[in-house]
């Protein structure tokens, strides 16, 4: 009897230590995860802050390897490319979202469309670059802002479509029924009742998609190519901030490396600011969906 008791206390001890060890490991893992974040952000700020000044934002790049100069053409190019992508991606994405939530229901075609959307979210962005290269760059014989924007826009479509469908589905059925009950046509119900009710969520999805494509690089190598000068035409190669980071990171000069950190800091800061605004503007929506 006594020996049995002893054994169970020993296993109890082992169990306790196993718990300490197990939870200790999870703590180490968490520290590793947070450490990765802080070392990347810390390095970015430490190295990048010195590169950022007024000239960096308003000047063209300096001659190869020389100090000074800025990334103004890249910033302008980013704005142009993102604008083009929004023209392509937002109407098409929201349209598909409306279709899936408001019109399609459970038809076979709807489930095919839904699978297509979910599959395309996972297709690597460089594939979209290949697509646009063959339908636009090769026929016109030039890399261009239009091609870059189109590639980014196509990447946006499935992201916006899915978030739109998700948030429209959160709108209570009673709102639609109330609209239909007073005799409003279905399109008025969608545009005057359902979409406004889901506004915050739709905007969230839009900002997420814009943030996502603003950080894209791979498809732009095949479509926008990059440029040292200010954009003069939508039908010529154009620079984007990620292409600039790529070029400077790979270059052999310390000045370039520092400017790459500076540009990366601006990019991360821009994306983080977007996500912060998004959190603040959609807090109510979040509270509802949880």
């Amino acid at each position: 009897m006594a020996s049995k008791h002893k054994t169970s206390s020993r296993t109890g001890n082992w169990r306790k230590w196993r718990g300490v060890l197990g939870f200790g490991l999870t703590g180490v893992a968490t520290l590793i995860s947070l450490g990765a974040l802080f070392s990347i952000l810390g390095y970015l700020i430490h190295q990048g802050i010195g590169a950022i000044n007024w000239n960096f934002i308003v000047r063209e790049p300096a001659a190869v390897g020389e100090a000074g100069g800025g990334i103004a053409p890249s910033l302008l190019g980013t704005l142009i490319l993102v604008s083009i992508s929004m023209v392509v991606g937002i109407p098409l994405g929201i349209g598909v979202g409306i279709y899936l939530s408001e019109i399609a229901g459970g038809t076979r075609f709807a489930s095919v469309a839904r699978i297509a959307i979910n599959t395309f979210i996972g297709v690597p962005s460089i594939i979209m670059g290949i697509f646009v290269y063959f339908i636009l760059v090769k026929p016109t014989n030039t890399f261009s802002a239009i091609a870059g924007g189109l590639a980014l826009g196509i990447i946006m479509i499935p992201i916006i479509a899915r978030t739109t469908e998700d948030v429209l589905r959160l709108v209570p059925k009673s709102i639609r029924e109330a609209g239909l009950a007073i005799g409003a046509p279905k399109w008025r119900v969608t545009f005057d009742l359902v979409l406004p009710a889901a506004r915050a969520g739709v905007i969230t999805g839009g900002i997420l998609a814009v943030a996502r494509v603003a950080g894209e690089t791979a498809p732009l190598i095949l479509t926008a190519l990059g440029n040292e000068y200010y954009p003069t035409s939508l039908f010529k190669p154009i620079d984007e901030i990620t292409l600039r980071i790529l070029k400077y990171a790979r270059g052999p000069y310390d000045v370039w490396h520092q400017q790459a950190y500076g540009a990366a800091l601006i990019l991360v800061f821009g994306v983080a600011l977007g996500s912060l605004l998004l959190r603040l503007s959609t807090r109510d929506h979040d509270a509802l969906s949880r």
């Binding site: 970015l44 990620t242 991360v268």
Partner: peptide, 16 residues
Amino acid sequence: LIELLAFIPSVVYGLF
């Protein structure tokens, strides 16, 4: 904080 990692564009990971 960990979700913040998702907002860093891949070219910045490449740079790092």
